[in-house]
Design a protein around this nucleic acid. Structure first.
Ligand code: SF4
Ligand code: SF4
Lengths: 163, 163
DNA sequence: TCCAATTCGGACAATTTGTATCCGCTTTAA
DNA sequence: TTAAAGCGGATACAAATTGTCCGAATTGGA
């Protein structure tokens, strides 16, 4: 049970896009270059973000990716669900209905205590991730690891990358 | 990001063992038969439970598996960690230290806000799973899906399976 | 208007991970 | 001594993940 690398990439990319000039798009190639990621594979993750309505994509020579909504309105959970899919982590194969002493179908109308416990645990996990937004993380990251020099370096880079 | 089938199997097996006669062991073959599971693969999961100290294994002709501690002292989290491993779900590849605008190593002493958020979410997930024990789930399952006839059927089966 | 440059999009292959099985070994009770 | 049972490693098989490619769509200028 491990989380895909694409989730980490997507979170970082959204952080960069949140800091990009309003109304301008950043090409996927530039985003890949920023973190030294495989461009073609990152493009696939960006497609998933686009399908989920988290980023918007403009094609053509002045195209690129930009956030589809405000950074404060995009949570970690949104990104995880976009990349990993919305299905539950624990999925039941109904083995209780098999074997020499099966649970009768009538008793299987409601999910069993085991599945309930896993769903409840996933619910609090999702709630926790839903509570932190891109905007908050960018603010925290800037305060912790940006000095004036690096901030200027970043702004120069993104001014060149944005279209 | 999905959870292994072996976890579901292990939880069910622990539930069966909790209902077995005290002091007697149930062979792995019988446990596989009860849920119609592939015997060889279930045996591997049982090894993991044994290594984690959740079940105890007795070898030899009167051997079998039995719970290593009280059912009320075995949580869902214990089983998940035994089967899936204890590593974190989200593991960072430190991509922030690469590319044209890297985070300086000095600022990477503490984990970043992104990783913190994921670790916090996993912590509440684990806490939730740690709060439900095998004993509680067996009690709930019995109340929901056991009538007198099925209870007798189950006790007859396990009396024959236990050694 | 048409063409060339640029970019996203989905289909496709390669790699890694997880699933499942088997067999020899040790241990134990009869 | 023998039969039953768990342990561990070696080995095939299936699936998900990772990674790459080429075509469709859009823009801007000739
Ligand atoms: S009893 Fe619960 S965990 Fe087991 S197969 Fe049914 S729903 Fe899944
Ligand atoms: S900044 Fe955070 S999420 Fe990104 S690579 Fe570093 S620790 Fe991981």
């Amino acid at each position: 049970m491990r989380i895909s690398d694409g989730v980490e990439w997507a979170v970082h990319v959204c952080g960069v896009l949140a800091a990009a000039p309003k109304g301008q798009g950043v090409p996927g190639l530039k985003l890949a270059e920023f973190h030294e990621l495989p461009p073609a594979y990152l493009a696939k993750q960006l497609q998933a973000l686009s399908r989920a309505g988290i980023v918007a994509a403009d094609r053509g020579v002045k195209g690129g990716y930009r956030l589809a909504r405000a950074p404060s309105d995009i949570s970690l959970l949104d990104i995880v669900l976009a990349i990993e899919g919305t299905g539950p982590v624990f999925r039941c194969t109904e083995i209780r209905q098999r074997g020499p002493c099966p649970t009768p179908p009538a008793a299987c109308r409601r999910i069993c205590p085991i599945a309930r416990a896993f769903l409840a645990a996933e619910a609090v996990w999702r709630t926790s991730l839903a509570g932190v937004s891109i905007a908050e993380m960018n603010r925290a990251a800037a305060a912790e690891s940006f000095d004036d020099k690096r901030r200027h370096q970043f702004e120069a880079w993104i001014a060149d990358a944005a279209r």
